[in-house]
Structures are given as C-alpha cells and as structure tokens.
C-alpha cells in the first residue's frame, strides 16, 4: 500500500444561514486505504461529503484530488474524474429495472472512455456490463433480481445498487455515506467482505459510518467530527481511547458499548 495522498482536504468551512456546519476541516486520504469518518448525528459528516463532491459549494477551503484542485468543479465533472459517492438516502431510478439503473452511469463520458460507445468494449453492450457489475456487487447469479424494478427492491439491494452505480464509473475513490445503516446484521456481514474486496481491487474508500464495530474491521484510520470541527484522527483504537471523543459521544450509550468491545 503506497502512502501517496489521493485526496487532500484543507480548511473546508460551510455555514447554513448562521449555523456552522463545517469549520476548517482538514484531512488526507492515502491511496488504497479505507478511511473512516465518524461523529455524532449532525456533526457535519454528510455536509463534508457534499462539499467534496461539489453538491454543495463550500464557503472556503480547498480540495485536492490526485493533486488537482476540484473545489470549484461541478458534481458531474468530479464524478468523471473517478471520485464517486453514494447517497445516505438511496437514490435509485425507481421506474427503471435494477440493471437499467446502471446504464445511466455507464453512459457517462468516463465510462464511455473505457468502454467504447457500446459501453462494454469487447464484452457486449451496457446491459451485459451492468449485469456483470451487479453480480460482482452481490446480486444473486443468474437470478431474476436485477430485472426487477428498483422500486420493488429491499434496502439491502438498494445499498448495493448505490455502490454499483459508483463502480460503473470505474472509480479510484468512493465516498460511502452510511452503507451499513438500515441493514440487518446478516446483510452487514455480507457487505463487509465486499468492502474488503473493493479495497483489494485498488479502490480507495472513505466511509461515513455509525456502525463502528463493522467500520473498525475495515478501516485503517478514522477521523472524528463534532459540531463541524475535527476532533482527532488516527488508528481506531487510539481514537476511541481519546477523552474528547468519549465526551462528544457522551449519552450515546451505543458507542460506549462498542468502544469496550472494540
């Protein structure tokens, strides 16, 4: 694993009508690692992702991706550079079958560059490629599930569909916004190897999570946000031993439990 920084975030700030959502947040993500972002509810984690991917214009600060400044770019331009994201609230195209959902990202300039105008290069058209990706991401092989309408799929599949949408772009970095939340324990158990597999494929992951135990199984470093400010950063065990982090989570018993288990 090389130590090169793929994403460098410096002093990002954002206010929403007087509420300080983010204040001078800086962190670096190294090539090939899994980087976790945790923090209590409302601490600005999702806002941070929105700022990095261009969905919200940040007030000040700078984001470098592979050395290029992307802080003023539009979301679609950023996605085309290989920096993709999932949404916390799943956003599939409900009126389309699951595999056709992937045709949209496969139609993007980035996917067309690698896949040719039919989308799949020598491997067939976009439909083939999307079925391929869906099976890779954990849809059952040769089943009918990928042909079902996205509106009829359960949460677990929709979360996978979100990840699949990122994968269709052949990304270098995925920002995952709570992929584990809302899933049952068995579904999470099948998601964790998937994350590990993505990492093995050389994709860098930034994960926002509330499920700390699962996160700590895959993440090499975590950062803690509280009220829009960065508290600390480091390897999970050290971070969780930090007094300020405990303070921030105080009252959130769930976390304390996990801390002791972890």
């Amino acid at each position: 694993m090389s130590g090169e920084n793929i994403l460098q975030v410096t002093n990002v700030s954002k206010t929403f009508g007087g509420v300080q959502a983010l204040l001078n947040v800086s962190f670096n993500v190294r090539q090939g690692e899994v980087f976790g972002i945790i923090g209590p509810n409302g601490s600005g984690k999702t806002t941070l992702i929105n700022c990095i991917t261009g969905f919200i214009k940040m007030d000040s600060g700078k984001v470098l991706y592979k050395g290029d400044d992307i802080s003023r770019k539009a979301p679609n331009q950023i996605a085309n550079l290989g920096l993709t994201r999932t949404f916390q609230i799943m956003r599939p195209y409900y009126s389309l079958p699951a595999y056709k959902n992937l045709i949209v990202p496969l139609f993007s300039p980035r996917a067309r560059r690698t896949g040719g105008w039919r989308g799949g290069g020598k491997l067939g058209d976009r439909g083939t490629v999307s079925i391929d990706i869906l099976e890779e991401i954990g849809f059952e092989r040769d089943s009918f599930v990928p042909y079902k309408l996205a509106s009829s799929l359960p949460t677990g599949y929709l979360k996978r569909l979100e990840l699949a949408r990122c994968l269709a772009l052949r990304p270098d970095l995925i920002l995952c916004d709570e992929v584990f939340s809302g899933l049952s324990m068995s579904e999470i158990a099948s998601m964790v190897p998937l994350i590990e597999k993505l990492q093995m494929d050389g994709i860098t992951l930034v994960m926002i999570e509330h499920r700390l135990r699962e996160l700590f199984r895959v993440a090499s470093r975590v950062m803690v946000l509280n009220f829009g400010e960065k508290l600390t950063e480091g390897i999970p065990e050290v971070v969780m031993a930090d007094e300020r982090v405990k303070e921030a989570y105080l009252g959130s018993e769930k976390l304390l439990d996990y801390t002791f288990e972890a």
Binding site: N76, F87, R91, R110, R165
Partner: peptide, 24 residues
C-alpha cells in the same frame, strides 16, 4: 435507448445522474 434511460434518470432523480458523472 440508453440515452432515453438517461432522460428517465433525470426525471426520477437528477442528483443521482449528477453523481453518475453526467451533466443534467
């Protein structure tokens, strides 16, 4: 067609289309 699916994607969910690297 594929481009038609992009149109329908824009209708269903323009944020996801943006996140897919397409200019809505």
């Amino acid at each position: 067609e594929d481009i038609g699916l992009v149109f329908r994607g824009v209708k269903d969910n323009d944020q996801a289309v943006k996140a897919s690297g397409l200019s809505i």
